[in-house]
């Protein structure tokens, strides 16, 4: 999808712009997330991490969304999915927290290492990512928004999911309800054009998902999700709309998936390497680096220091997580009901 074809149906409201400081913070977070993502993928190949789903190619859209919530919503809460490492990291999940999850170690904060990595809940960090069943969190996010509205809170709910999830019937039901009740929610669709192996052409007969927004009488936009500033602008407008009682919107990010669906997948049987090569030219990390260095905001020295800091942090976190024990088997019967 070329940028010229992208359409924006959202109202043309001004967003609180990203500052230089914001862009550098986003770059630092993106470096950390990319380094962590590469590390856990390597640890999977070493036999240390049982399952990994990569966020590589999605990071700009995810970080722009979090910054849009922070800077434009009085309060917010996120329902995320399994490919949202940059969202969870930006919300405060540390590299060691995540690594304990990938290695299923004691002290993993989201589920006590009961669930796949990144799954469970951190309400203290404003996110829930409970299920491995795609789309189940979309009506739940709408329910959370209903609760916030009923209590008169000024919370904006952000619900993240991929293009594959858009095919679920519950997603349609949830969006319909959200629009009827003008709930304060934004649906962030990270469209990497593949539902595991199934391409867009076999997922929907329309060119871009956001076209469905019209059927729900909500604004929908498709934006280059590898571009931090464009993503931030689209996300911010949707967040602001939700915050002032204008109801839900769909923000579809056109992103890339550089790695197989998960570490258990083999994408060589369904993707042309040339396609991935082409997609690499849109690498959100490279694009942000080019933006910052090209405008003189990031010197080579500072860039090298930031990369080293990210590597050091991941190294320390990896050692610490690897040294942690597995959970005690006594934990297995706990938290079934309020009585246990």
């Amino acid at each position: 999808m070329a940028d010229a074809e992208l359409q924006t149906d959202l109202p043309d409201a001004p967003a609180d712009a990203l500052t230089t400081e914001d862009l550098l913070d986003i770059y630092a977070t993106m470096l950390l997330v990319r380094t962590l993502d590469e590390r856990v993928w390597a640890m999977n190949r070493q036999g240390k991490a049982a399952i990994v789903a990569s966020s590589q190619g999605h990071e700009a859209a995810q970080l722009a969304s979090v910054w849009a919530l922070r800077k434009n919503a009085p309060d917010f809460f996120c329902f995320t999915y399994y490919r949202d490492l940059a969202v969870t990291t930006a919300l405060g999940l540390t590299a060691e927290d995540s690594l304990r999850g990938f290695l299923a170690r004691d002290g993993e904060p989201l589920s006590g290492a009961r669930q796949f990595p990144q799954h469970g809940a951190a309400p203290e960090l404003k996110f829930i990512n409970h299920s491995n069943v795609i789309g189940t969190h979309v009506p739940q996010a709408v329910g959370w928004a209903l609760g916030a509205k009923m209590r008169g809170e000024d919370t904006v709910v952000a619900c993240f999911f991929g293009d594959g999830t858009t095919s679920q019937g519950e997603v349609h039901e949830a969006m319909n309800f959200a629009s009827i009740h003008k709930l304060p929610i934004v649906f962030f669709v990270e469209n990497n054009k593949y539902a595991i192996s199934v391409p867009m052409s076999r997922q929907m007969a329309i060119e871009r998902y956001a076209l469905r927004a019209e059927g729900y009488a909500m604004p929908g936009t498709t934006v280059d999700g590898t571009d931090v500033r464009a993503s931030y602008q689209a996300a911010s407008i949707a967040v602001q709309l939700a915050a002032i009682g204008g109801g839900p919107s769909i923000v579809e990010f056109d992103v890339e998936r550089y790695l197989p669906h998960t570490s258990d997948d083999d994408d060589t049987v369904y993707r042309d390497p040339a396609e991935i090569e082409q997609a690499r030219k849109r690498d959100p990390l490279e694009k942000l680096h080019a933006l910052l260095s090209g405008t003189g905001l990031l010197s080579e020295e500072r860039d090298a220091a930031m990369k080293k800091r990210a590597r050091d942090e991941i190294n320390v976190a990896t050692d610490s997580a690897e040294a942690a024990p597995f959970p005690s088997d006594e934990d297995v019967f706990r938290h079934v009901t309020s009585e246990t």
């Binding site: 609760g147 916030a148 039901e173 319909n176 009827i180």
Partner: peptide
């Protein structure tokens, strides 16, 4: 009508929205 909500004929989301509202403290 805030506390007595007529829903569309869609049982999956009646349950799912209730789950989310319950998670939020209702």
């Amino acid at each position: 009508e805030q506390r007595v909500i007529d829903t569309p004929l869609a049982e999956a989301s009646i349950a799912g929205i209730a789950v989310g509202a319950a998670l939020s403290g209702l």
